[in-house]
Amino acid sequence: MSATAPRPNGAPPGAVAAARRYGEVVAPYLVLAAVWQLAALAFPSYLFPPLDAVLARFFAIVTSAKQFTDVLATLWRILAGLAGAFLIGGVIAFVMAQSRTMDRFLAPILTFFQGIPALSWVVFAIIWIHGIELRIFVIMVMTTLPAFTFQILGALRAISKDLFEMVLSFRPTRWGRFRVMVLPSILPDILTAWKVNLGNASRVVVVAELVGATGGIGYELLQQQQLFDMTGALAWTLQLVFFVLLVQRLLAWIETHAFRYRAASEHSL
């Protein structure tokens, strides 16, 4: 665009920039919706239901206390599983970072666990554990634990020796060292780990609920499949998708604010 090109409706540059920013956010979803709507026009509605029907069903779920409880149950399971894996993985990562012996002992075990498919953990958990909530919690933890551990361990190992020495020269307490140096150093990697694992967890929880629960989005999806109800399947899926998008947005916002110290020049891409 030429530097002298007139702005639409004489809008101020800030408004144009904001409109462009929002446009960039919304455009991919609008294209997706348009493609779906076209498919709905071309195919029978039991295969590709129109968007208005899907949205109506979506809001029906949100406004029904009984159905929305299922949504909340799934979201709670995701967050609880991720929090559990994060805490356990964090402790394991600190132990591995402190002790070479523990690192040599635990790294192969975690790598072995990483190779076990999520579906296998679902089967193991159904066989081993009777309580539904504990069963799903164990599945969530076991499928996301290795990734959390390795990501936090990598972050701990990447802490700058020079900066650590500088902080040490002030003789901090153990807590002071953690607060001033360790936590801010590893925070970017922790957020990345949450973002990556959130996507994994949302897929795993559906599988876990599909075969191992009597409630939740996964369980409801199973009901829709048995009823051959594509509208319902989409509406329930969208509950989960919107939740993941919402949390991703929240994490991105935290990143923007917590890491505002990063210079634009630090970003290579």
Partner: peptide
């Protein structure tokens, strides 16, 4: 005892004043 290093070793996530406060926090 305080140390001045060859390179500044400032914590990038702290402002100038935040960096000066490190020792005082300890």
């Amino acid at each position: 005892l305080a140390v001045v290093f060859q390179n500044d070793r400032l914590l990038p996530w702290r402002t100038a004043i935040g960096n000066v406060e490190i020792g005082l926090e300890m």
